[in-house]
């Protein structure tokens, strides 16, 4: 099994290597920070034209996760679109693809700071949603048993930094799922202060790998093999 299964606030969770969170008991899949349309927004604002394949790349990944888990509910945990214009100017073929992915399941857009308010696209738009014992919203608050996104956490183990889930007893932050997204290191104060003394990081990649984060992490190095 390449995913990492664990129990979070009495709910069975599976952190998938892709960065998606699966709740098998609730038939729910959750992905955060897709940032669809990021290259379009960058072109509009700066003139720099990045390879325009990120929506394709992100939807392809999402399609794989959907096929593997067949969820009844899909939650996009905010910043699904890089800005409201991006949702509006989604190319037709990508819009069609998204509609196909939405077919036959409940699709929830949680609003994020990049995409506040409803958009011209199918699905339910909510500020937050409760599933079982858990609350899903874009930016972490003080609510216990909360799953959020927004920070794009990354964690470094054995010299390699990868997007990562972070969680402790009461809070979980999901990695960014979108193709063109950077990351914030797990030791950044903004991120670190959300958690108690012993959070766990689940690194994404070929396999989901869980590691504990300590207060003053000793550098977990594989002896001198990374330059």
């Amino acid at each position: 099994m390449d995913s990492h299964s664990f129990t979070f606030c009495a709910t069975r969770c599976v952190a998938r290597p892709s960065g998606a969170l699966h709740l098998p008991d609730h038939d729910t899949l959750c992905v955060s920070d897709l940032h669809l349309g990021k290259s379009d927004r960058i072109a509009r604002r700066s003139g720099v034209m990045l390879p325009p394949y990120e929506i394709h790349e992100t939807l392809e990944k999402l399609e794989t996760d959907i096929h593997a888990t067949a969820p009844q509910t899909l939650i996009c945990l905010g910043d699904s679109f890089d800005d409201p214009d991006a949702a509006h100017s989604l190319p037709d073929d990508m819009r069609l693809w998204l509609t196909k992915l939405q077919a036959g399941r409940k699709w929830i857009w949680i609003e994020g700071n990049h995409d506040p308010g409803p958009m011209d696209i199918g699905g339910t738009h909510l500020a937050h949603i409760a599933i079982g014992t858990l609350t899903f919203r874009h930016i972490a608050t003080d609510t216990p048993a909360e799953v959020s996104g927004h920070y794009h956490p990354k964690h470094r183990v054995a010299g390699r930094s990868r997007p990562a889930f972070l969680y402790d007893q009461s809070r979980m932050v999901l990695p960014a799922y979108g193709a063109y997204t950077g990351g914030l290191s797990s030791d950044a104060p903004d991120l670190r202060r959300l958690f108690g003394p012993h959070p766990i990081a689940v690194l994404t990649g070929k396999k989901a790998v869980a590691v504990p984060i300590t207060e003053n992490p000793p550098p977990p190095r594989v002896r001198g093999r990374s330059s």
């Binding site: 183990v157 054995a158 390699r160 690194l203 070929k206 790998v209 590691v211 504990p212 977990p220």
Partner: peptide
């Protein structure tokens, strides 16, 4: 690399 990463992670856990 993956093998070592997993080994290191397991040790830490």
């Amino acid at each position: 690399q993956d093998r070592l990463l997993e080994e290191a992670a397991l040790q830490l856990m």
